[in-house]
Nucleic acid binder design. Structure first.
Length: 316
DNA sequence: AACGGCGCCAACCGCGCAGCT
DNA sequence: TAGCTGCGCGGTTGGCGCCGT
């Protein structure tokens, strides 16, 4: 038996996305908003699985994604949230709006897991005062497992409430009647396309279907018009394509960018602002629930709690 | 310079859940 | 209420680039 495949595997392209495919996808989302992923291949001619389209959008093309190395602050947040929530990457990503769950998951698996393991081993092997006491040996615990579980349950409840508060203040997804222009992404996509065109032999040969070509022809003016707006940026020029995405958000939880989004035309699909006539709620006078949560996560109590608690189980 | 090992990260896969009929 | 469909999530994999030998 088993579930049927999510899409027809025949003729579906796999592997890395080309800049042209990215542009087609971005254009589709501009016009229709994120969602209804099933319709994307049929509408655009993209020879991609709907899931692949959604993944590409959420993990790479979606505006507001910060790329590059994680800050110490983000690192601490991830460590503590992982200890609290487990491998709930989507939930953890909800507290780090500029990072995708995939990014966090990758960072955890490739960096933090190893790092914390080393810290743990180091602290045990060397029997020295711990520079990081997150993973103190369970032998030294004065807290019983029952007490620990109760505290964990209490903290999860608190975190859930904070998350609920945070999410309830966010705006819904973009209105399909007022598609949001994802200028930041489109800009980079346009740049990508230009780079890609430079590197593509002018043979007239295309990797795409005719449907896809006609669709991309139709969207070219859209991309150009958005690109020509030249949203102000002080990013360094780079030849690395998407690597030079300008990080428009200077504060993780301060939503600084939201206050300036009108002027710089950066927008986010999942965050409050006002862009291109789309009303997005924000209240600069009231403290962000995420800020509250951040404070809660990082306050002395939490650190003390983590100091005295073993999370070895998370380091599988 | 060539080769192999390793790390990183984008993308894929399978399952679960929620909404709709 | 059961079945179907679409979406989201977490685990895993494949490919590319870097580094050491």
């Amino acid at each position: 038996m088993g579930r049927p495949p999510c899409c027809d595997k025949v003729g579906v392209k796999k592997g890395s996305w080309t800049p042209e495919e990215d542009i087609i996808l971005v254009s589709y989302v501009q016009q229709n908003g994120p969602g209804n992923w099933r319709a994307v291949p049929a509408t655009t001619g993209l020879r991609r699985c709907s899931k692949s389209c959604r993944l590409r959008w959420t993990n790479y093309l979606r505006p507001g994604i910060k790329r590059g190395s994680f800050t110490d602050h983000e690192e601490k947040m991830i460590i503590q949230l992982q200890a609290l929530l487990g491998n709930k990457w989507a939930a953890i990503a909800a507290y780090l709006p500029e990072r995708t769950d995939n990014d966090i998951k990758n960072y955890w698996n490739t960096h933090l897991k190893k790092k914390l393991k080393n810290l743990e081993n180091g602290s045990i092997d060397q029997d020295q005062p711990k520079t990081n006491t997150l993973f103190s040996s369970s032998k030294s615990h004065s807290i019983s497992r029952g007490q620990w579980e109760k505290r964990l349950q209490d903290d999860i409840t608190t975190a859930k409430q904070a998350l609920h508060d945070a999410l309830s203040s966010d705006s819904p997804s973009p209105n399909n009647n007022n598609p949001v222009l994802y200028a930041s992404s489109t800009q980079n996509i346009a740049k990508l396309l230009k780079d890609w065109e430079k590197n593509t032999p002018k043979s007239g040969e295309s990797k795409c279907s005719s449907t896809q070509n006609s669709y991309s022809n139709n969207i070219s003016t859209t991309v150009d018009s958005v690109y020509s707006k030249e949203a102000p940026t002080n990013c360094d020029e780079s030849e690395s394509g998407m690597e030079d995405l300008c990080p428009p958000f200077e504060s993780m939880f301060g939503f600084k960018a939201l206050e300036t989004s009108n002027s710089d035309e950066f927008s986010r699909s999942a965050s409050p602002s006002v862009v291109n006539g789309v009303e997005i709620k924000t209240d600069p006078t009231s403290p962000s629930p995420l800020s509250m949560l951040e404070n809660w996560l990082l306050d002395f109590e939490m650190k003390d709690y983590l100091t005295n608690t073993s999370f070895d189980q998370n380091l599988v």
